[in-house]
Design a protein around this nucleic acid. Structure first.
Lengths: 125, 125
DNA sequence: CCCATAAATTGACATCCATCGATGCAATGG
DNA sequence: CCATTGCATCGATGGATGTCAATTTATGGG
């Protein structure tokens, strides 16, 4: 601990705007997003970062009255009914779809602003 | 095989616009996205659907000259250097970041239109 | 030359996740 | 009251994924 050794090396890297900085890290000019915000956003993105779920969202949005039941979605997706129900649950839990059970059927519907700009621009809905 | 049994049940569901439909599935009014398009989009979304990678993108965008090396990102992320390098590789492979090695350091930079509306609107960059 | 530093790669590990078959449960019609 | 249909849940399973320690590779300085 009582070493009198000077800093062994510590190369200086050419910092573009602030040439006084002794070490690597130049300071950020703006604020980056926090960990909690990142986790919240990641949860939403994970919900749609799947081919089956993207197609589900698109299929529901493309359907006649903007709603669809599981039996409407199983065949065009080419997946088993339990798998489709699983994906729908993920989307509902993420706040992207709503579930409305009427009689024997369960109708799924898009939550209007849930996907933000994603739906209108990226997905072209 | 030679059964003469009639259709056993086949309940009719109230279809909102087309009351003639005999079975469940009402036709889609618009086209849904295809499987290949869904997979392509899902790959891009998977790349950012992670808290660490979201913060990496945000940190790079918030940095002084809009570029940053690994040593700039390891500490604020609180992850090991190999893990940060791994996430950066995922982002580069997805076409979201570019890697430019100058000397000992590797500088990462945002690809302008890669995230589409995601960057400007959802991430607030 | 050898060493120090930056970063990528490797290997291992734990966890998550997409998928399916089987089962359970609710509602509806006969 | 039973059979059928739509849908959710359970259990299992194979594959992807996030993380780290250890190692390797590249670069530059003494």
């Amino acid at each position: 601990m009582g070493d009198t050794v000077q800093m062994p090396f510590t190369e200086t890297r050419p910092v573009p705007e602030a040439p006084i900085e002794p070490v690597c890290c130049a300071p950020a000019s703006r604020e980056a997003i926090g960990t909690d915000e990142a986790e919240r956003l990641a949860r939403l993105l994970k919900a749609v970062a799947d081919p089956a779920r993207l197609r589900l969202v698109s299929l529901v949005a493309a359907h006649a009255d903007l709603e669809a039941c599981v039996c409407d979605l199983t065949e065009p997706l080419g997946l088993s009914q339990p798998t489709v129900s699983h994906h729908l649950k993920v989307l509902v839990d993420a706040g992207i779809l709503t579930r409305d059970k009427r009689g024997t059927w369960a109708y799924y519907r898009l939550v209007p602003g849930a996907l933000g700009s994603l739906a209108e621009r990226v997905l072209g809905l």
